[in-house]
């Protein structure tokens, strides 16, 4: 049991990686599409929103991984 819970604890932060990437893209695309509908600027805001969503998705992906790697390094040293 201790082994099971410790592995769950280690895997915890990574559980959200994929979903975060998808959620960022979805929010970006949704925002761009909605604004396009409202302002009648098809398709430019949709494209800009997608680019922003994909960019921020990758940004958060690497941010989380870097944070975890730094934490793991610190854990090794102490």
């Amino acid at each position: 049991m201790p082994r099971f819970s410790s592995s769950l604890r280690q895997v915890g932060p990574y559980l959200n990686l994929g979903a975060m990437l998808a959620a960022c893209v979805a929010i970006g695309v949704g925002l761009g599409y909605g604004l396009d509908e409202k302002l009648g600027t098809h398709p430019w805001l949709l494209l800009a929103g997608s680019a922003l969503g994909i960019g921020s998705g990758f940004y958060h992906f690497f941010k989380t991984i870097n944070q975890q790697l730094r934490k793991a390094d610190k854990g090794d040293e102490s």
């Binding site: 959200n16 979903a19 975060m20 998808a22 959620a23 960022c24 979805a26 929010i27 970006g28 922003l52 969503g53 921020s56 998705g57 940004y59 958060h60």
Partner: peptide
């Protein structure tokens, strides 16, 4: 976007 994406996910 990250702040809102977390609860969305």
């Amino acid at each position: 976007m990250g702040v809102f994406a977390k609860p969305f996910a």
